[in-house]
Amino acid sequence: MVELTVGSARLKEGFAKMQKGGVIMDVTTAEQAKIAEAAGAVAVMALHAVPSDIRATGGVARMADPVKVKAIIDAVTIPVMAKCRIGHYAEAQILQELGADMVDESEVLTPADEENHIDKKKFTVPFVCGARDLGEALRRINEGAAMIRTKGEPGTGNIIEAVRHMNKMNREIRDISNRKQDEKYLQLKAGDYRVPLELIKKTAELGRLPVVNFAAGGIAIPADASLMMQMGSDGVFVGSGIFKSNEPEKFARAIVEATKHFDDAKALLEASKGLGEPMKGIDIRSMKEEDKMQTRSK
């Protein structure tokens, strides 16, 4: 008999690597999932409501009904991801049991634990987590996250927060990379970020996060996807941007195109033409601090 290994870091991080260069789309029904797949999405994120609706509805946002997630799993052949609340490992266990290919421990839902994130190394399925800076990203990776995404500000259709988070992460990675010979400095950073020195050293050596890093939280039009890719994202998550636009099919296809041709202005121009009304969006400056989802975890 051949000996099998399941749930290894290589399998989890490898799964995330297969998503690179792609677009992962939020969907709430099997029909939306089919539209996403036909448009060339590499995976879908199954939700009970898209972030902008979660924001509008208020109350406690929890994992989606397993029946709805299962209907989406059965409707498409691409991977299906699903969200659980931060720290809510019981929701994650249910999603793994159901067959979700990746779990997003997400600030879009109402956090269940303010002190602890899920111990993701205990799971067979890989996890993706949001981050606003390098410290947050490395803490999540240290807990076992196989993929990181910027938090941005979900459900706003406003790219400014995702840009802020990507800028900060890039700056902080450059900083440790430039001083990778300076053991004392790296030690200091490990203390600051509350992660093992080894993880800091690895990141400094690579000059990038040691796992796949996507952009999320505010991508609404093809140009937003291109901007994030040019800033160094490995791919993009689009939440409300597609199914809150007037023409979801067109937007889905155009964002896939813009992600692939992120540095080709001619192709970007084509992808951006005549899409109709994008989602309306929110100016971050008009938001109350307590309405922001990105500050829900550290």
Binding site: V2, E3, L4, T5, V6, G7, S8, R10, L11, G14, F15, P79, Q96, G99, D101, M102, T124, V125, P126
Partner: peptide, 8 residues
Amino acid sequence: RQRESFEA
């Protein structure tokens, strides 16, 4: 699915 992914 992914939970059945394996190394051998």
